[in-house]
Amino acid sequence: MKPAAFDYIRAKSAAHASALLAEDENGRIIAGGQTLMPMLAMRLARPSRLIDVARISELSYIRDEKDKISIGATTRQVMVEKSTLIAKRLPLLHKAIEWVGHPPTRARGTVGGSLANSDPAAEISLVAATLGATLRYVDETGENSISTDEYFIGPMITALPATACLAGADFPVWSEKRVGTGFEEVNARSSDFAFVSAAAQAALDADDKCARIALGIGGLGDFPVRVDIDAAKDQIEKESAVREAIAEAIADIEPLADLHATAEYRQRVAVTLAYRAVRNAVREAKELAYAN
């Protein structure tokens, strides 16, 4: 299991990486390598050249930009895990990150790498999709951005232009005072990719009414999706209403089927996990009232 031969170059900046990609269509970016390296070892990926962006220091940051948290593409997952800023301001990502691989892979794996590889069950992608993050990238035309709604288009496939280098992701921060989150996932072992997963963020007003609800489901279809359950917003604590809204929202998603889980399993359990994520998010938001 040795990779096929390739050249290696370190990019000095995202723009440099993009220029290097433009030079050679078989070039490929490597950051933490936690997804790419196994593919190289099994020769499922055969780049002519690896463009290493891991050392571009200006791409490694977690910044509070008031209405959003901005995370650089080469920020290691462990930095997100340990960030008090993320814990406080982006609790959904904080909850999700511990489901990403295990400690040694989080030490090397990057936020941008996870988003760029776009595994259908990747937790960071799910949070990005749920919250409607904006992904920033650099290509020959300069700095650009794309919303997650357009970004995820297939299993391990994104709408990122061929010569683009991901620069960062901006996760919206909700302004409501009572925001709760829920993250649910089922997998064979805790470090494995999920068969199916769900992320929810709920905001309640002072009267415990649901002001805003965001729900995302991962692992079900080709990519993580945000599902609209606004129909159940007024009955957010009513299990049947929420389940019904979820079931309706995911009815059109073609479920994946593989060795690990049948399509029926994914479809059925997606509803349960999504419901539980919503329930937990609402519960958490409610508890905040008492804390305040």
Binding site: G33, A41, A54, P104, T105, A107
Partner: peptide, 19 residues
């Protein structure tokens, strides 16, 4: 294959020597 790189355990099979 775990080794410690810059203070943290990592998989040395998932890292190129040049990295």
């Amino acid at each position: 294959c775990t080794v410690i790189v810059d203070g943290t355990p990592v998989r040395s099979c998932l890292m190129l020597a040049v990295q």
